[in-house]
Nucleic acid binder design. Structure first.
Length: 634
RNA sequence: GCCGGUGUAGCUCAGUUGGCUAGAGCAGCUGAUUUGUAAUCAGCAGGCCACGGGUUCGAAUCCUGUCACCGGCUCCA
């Protein structure tokens, strides 16, 4: 019979051939690399018998779909191993995920990651046995009987759409309710590793029981696995919490409180450079700066609705002469009060008010994470008040601005989400539609690819979120652009139109970097702690060879300082080798060695962190070069 | 908040089955050395073993509570 291939050619295979037979007919190498097939576009096992006229493509272990099959199969082998080692275990689910797989179990007794090598060993044995994965389709009744002792599986079974057949896969002694497809046998699983064990609520709901999740990863080859593990190690080395300590940027102090970072001089300097750039960029882009107090009367928060809708994230009120005050969790109400301080004309709009506004939000202790998730943070916030006819242009303006900001910091890849109306929301359908459309159009006009996040908008309006990834591949939301019809309503915000009538402006809330804490955390990881020259807290360190070069070293330092370069002089009585080592460990962009030769010639010997020894250069020439690099932010 | 883990000097870590005065390297201080592209040598100092309660003749070690941190879940910038 004839089978169609992806390149539109056909092959002739005997009646009753399977997908694997077809792969073998194409080539033995392909057959060995194959993990599954797509038959007429549907994922299928290699053991699936083919019909004449089927079109198939073979999925190999190094393709994204192939990896998914491989990892999903690895999850089954993990479950087999766990069932053997810990009898009585109840099974949750075990899917493939972005970089690996997991399986959720309800174990008879808690385990720690010290058990992982043992489980992995068991998995190795099972993989060595090359047990086939066999598929079986069965009725609901049969399936229910099969998983009689498995409450979570029964729950899944009950929710399987009626039109969908129940199927199971068996490998070794283990049978799981599963759609498939799977690798032909466990022997194809050659490169895998268990990584961690963690708690996870059944179906992600905290009202449900907490299961034990075991994470692992698998690849087609050992080499790919090793590369991936190496990548994880590199990510650990880039961890901003580690680098923050090593580079003396910040710390979080037990005595001060969890989630409340303290910025050391070097960290504060990086922050200052970012803040200066941010303010200048905003002033240049039609924004004005405003400032508001950190606490405000509870009445303000009642008007804004935060007291009702956001209370679980707010800290308790404090009593001031019988009046209740609250530490701000957001900046918007303050900015609105500035707007409302006098009558506004349509001619003034759009108004763009920006502030590096520090807010405090209650976060559950378990979610705190270095600088990336804290309880007190500074948003690079702004609120735009505009007329309806200005909305789209304003959003486009914000998107262009955010791309400029992020690119300046070297972030060229982000995930963009458009979040639409959630179930609990305020405002008319018409408003929502118009605002969502405006966001869409703006994204498209900016040429940004995005995903729709249905129902994930804020209660008061749709939003665009942008995420950047941390060292371990976790995505962190930084940028957010939110359209708001609610607050103008609640505060009765108006402007006087051309028609001498009062009109309601639309508000846009936006944070480009998100918060300075999170952004700098990501930035540290992004640069692996080696900041580009314009951001580096110390841009150059001068290393005199001997004490007699100290005067000249000071002259060089003064010269560079005069040009606005942040210079340090290493006074220590150490060898040059040691001074260089220290500067390297501090990831200082430029090390300037001065000795007899340099003093005579009016030069410095330049060593760059990135490129190593660059040889001697005249001081004036270097100074000009550094100044230019700082200006270019390169 | 929940599940599991961890908490020893400023940092990174040792510390046997509970048993002498809790160790090391780096950093710090002092002295010697005046050094040419990733660690000169020597000496000194530094610990409420996270914190509270308990078991024990005896606790860094065992139990327990609290706090913080780590990996996740849930939730978010």
């Amino acid at each position: 019979m004839e089978i169609k291939l992806p390149d539109n050619s056909t092959i002739d295979v005997p009646e009753g051939s399977t997908a694997l037979d077809a792969a073998a007919a194409i080539g033995q190498r392909l057959a060995r690399a194959a993990v599954a097939a797509a038959v007429n576009g549907e994922p299928a096992d290699l053991s699936r018998p083919l019909q004449a006229g089927d079109s198939i493509s073979i999925i190999t272990g190094d393709s994204p779909q192939g990896l998914e099959v491989l990892r999903h199969s690895a999850a089954h082998v993990l479950a087999d191993a766990v069932m053997r080692l810990y009898p009585g275990t109840k099974l949750g689910i075990g899917p493939a995920i972005a970089d690996g797989f997991y399986y959720d179990f309800q174990l008879p007794a808690p385990i720690s990651d010290a058990e992982l090598p043992r489980i992995e060993e068991e998995m190795r044995k099972l993989a060595g046995a090359a047990a086939p994965f066999t598929r079986r389709e069965l009725s609901r009744g049969e399936a229910a009987a099969q998983f009689a002792g498995q409450p979570f599986k029964l729950e899944l079974l009950a929710e399987l759409p009626a039109e969908e057949a129940a199927s199971t896969y068996t490998n070794g002694e283990f049978t799981d309710l599963c759609r498939g497809p799977h690798i032909p046998d466990t022997g194809r699983l050659k490169a895998f590793r268990l990584l961690s064990v963690a708690g996870a609520y059944w179906r992600g709901d905290e009202k449900n029981p907490m299961l034990t999740r075991i994470y692992g990863t698998a690849f087609a080859t050992q080499k790919q696995l090793d590369e991936h593990l190496e990548k994880l190690k590199e990510a650990e080395r880039r961890d901003h919490r580690l680098l923050g300590k090593q580079l003396d940027l910040f710390h979080i102090d037990e005595e001060v409180g969890a989630g409340l970072p303290l910025w050391h001089p070097k960290g504060a300097l990086v922050r200052k450079v970012i803040e200066d750039f941010w303010r200048d960029a905003h002033l240049a882009n039609g924004y004005e700066m405003v400032m508001i107090p950190h606490i405000a009367s509870v009445e303000l928060w009642k008007t804004s609705g935060h007291w009702d809708f956001y209370r679980e994230n707010m800290y308790s009120p404090m009593d001031i002469e019988g009046q209740e005050y609250i530490v701000k969790p957001m900046n918007c109400p303050g900015h609105i009060r500035i707007y409302k301080n006098r009558t506004r004309s349509y001619r003034e709009l759009p108004i763009r008010w920006a502030e590096l506004g520090t807010v405090y939000r209650y976060e559950r202790s378990g979610v705190l994470h270095g600088l990336l998730r804290v309880r007190g943070f500074t948003q690079d916030d702004a609120h735009l008040f505009c007329r309806e006819d200005q909305l789209e242009d304003e959003i486009i303006g914000v998107i262009k601005f955010v791309l400029f900001m992020l690119r300046t910091f070297g972030f060229d890849e982000y995930e963009v989400y458009l979040s639409t109306r959630p179930e609990k929301s305020v405002g008319s359908d018409e408003h929502w539609e118009r605002a969502t459309e405006a966001l869409k159009v703006a994204l498209e006009r900016a040429g940004l690819g995005y995903e729709i996040d249905p129902g994930e908008g804020v209660f008061y309006g749709p939003k665009i979120d942008m995420k950047i990834r941390d060292a371990l591949g976790r995505a962190w939301q930084c940028t957010t652009i939110q359209v708001d019809f609610n607050l103008p309503e609640r505060f009765d915000v108006t402007y006087v139109g051309e028609d001498n009538q009062e009109h309601r402006p639309i508000m846009i809330h936006r944070a480009l970097l998100g918060s300075l804490e999170r952004f700098i955390g990501c930035l540290i990881e992004h640069y692996a702690g080696a900041f580009p020259l314009w951001l580096a807290p110390v841009q150059a360190v001068i290393l005199p060879i001997a004490d007699r070069h100290m005067d000249y070293a000071e002259q060089v330092a003064a010269r560079l300082t005069q040009e606005g370069i942040r210079v340090e002089l290493d006074y220590s009585k150490e060898s040059v080798g040691k001074k260089i080592r220290n500067a390297e460990l501090d990831k200082v962009p430029y090390m300037l060695v001065v000795g007899d030769k340099e003093e005579d010639a009016g030069t410095v010997s330049v060593r760059s962190y990135a490129e190593g020894d660059l040889g001697p250069r005249p001081v004036d020439e270097l100074a000009a070069d550094l100044v230019r690099q700082v200006e270019d932010k390169s």
